[in-house]
Amino acid sequence: MDLETITEYRPAPGAAWQPGDAWLGGGTWLFSEPQPGLRRLLDLRGFGWAPLTESRGGLEIAATCTIAELARWRPGGPAAVAWATVPLLRQCCDALLASFKVQNMATVGGNICLALPAGAMTSLAAALDGVTTLWSPGGGVREVPVIGFVTGPGTTVLRPGELLRSVTLPDASLRGRTAFRQASLSRLGRSAALVIGRTDGPGLVITVTAATPRPVQFRFAARPSPDEATAALDRAGLDRAGLDGAGLDGAGLDGGHLTWHDDVHGAPAWRAAMTRRFVAEVAAELRE
């Protein structure tokens, strides 16, 4: 889409952010809708960040890493054996409402910052306890866990001019086993419910996205049975006290309650039912 108000395009390095600026990653969303408030586009590719960097601490994914690059990526060295969660990367890339033509341009950072409930890069990074690194216009750096980065449909903790530099997936999270479930109204459609289970030592982490306005995560100290896992969901639907009483960490619950997203891609009741079913399924799959 022709953005008629844009008067300047320049590489982001060295550009002082000002109101009316937008960070430009792949541009696939930016150019798909009118952006009447924008004047300048600051192209992040000028930083030349490596898309994916392995280290002992985990995997750093640059904000400019494309979805296609992430989908193709395979670890080398010891991580090739240790990081059991790698297939999850591809599963989440394929859960986006985007053909490979879009995946060739769209970026991981862009998908997370867009903060759609169905943003599968948010699902991935939240499920693996990813941590965002944010650069502020004044030169400061802060880190925010992905589970708290997205605060609602289209909203994040980003401050004006702040830039998502990267997301780091910790080594320990990449070593877990995972189970993935997703529902959408059509096979390649936008996710209406997406549930990821991940083993965490003797415990289990279940992350719910797409069905909820923001990521919701349940951490179990021991592997729950399917009934125990769905009971956590049910308690979260009642009140915060019920969740605390069960010793569950329900990160991402709005006002202490579990709420369900409502848009054309799925009715709340259906999302809730599918989520409940998926939570039971991932708990069963990872119980052994």
Binding site: Y9, G27, F31
Partner: peptide, 19 residues
Amino acid sequence: CVVWLDETPVKSCTVLAAM
């Protein structure tokens, strides 16, 4: 509007000429 950009298909209505 699909064309190839460096050997990969992309939708050219969401790519700036400058990119």
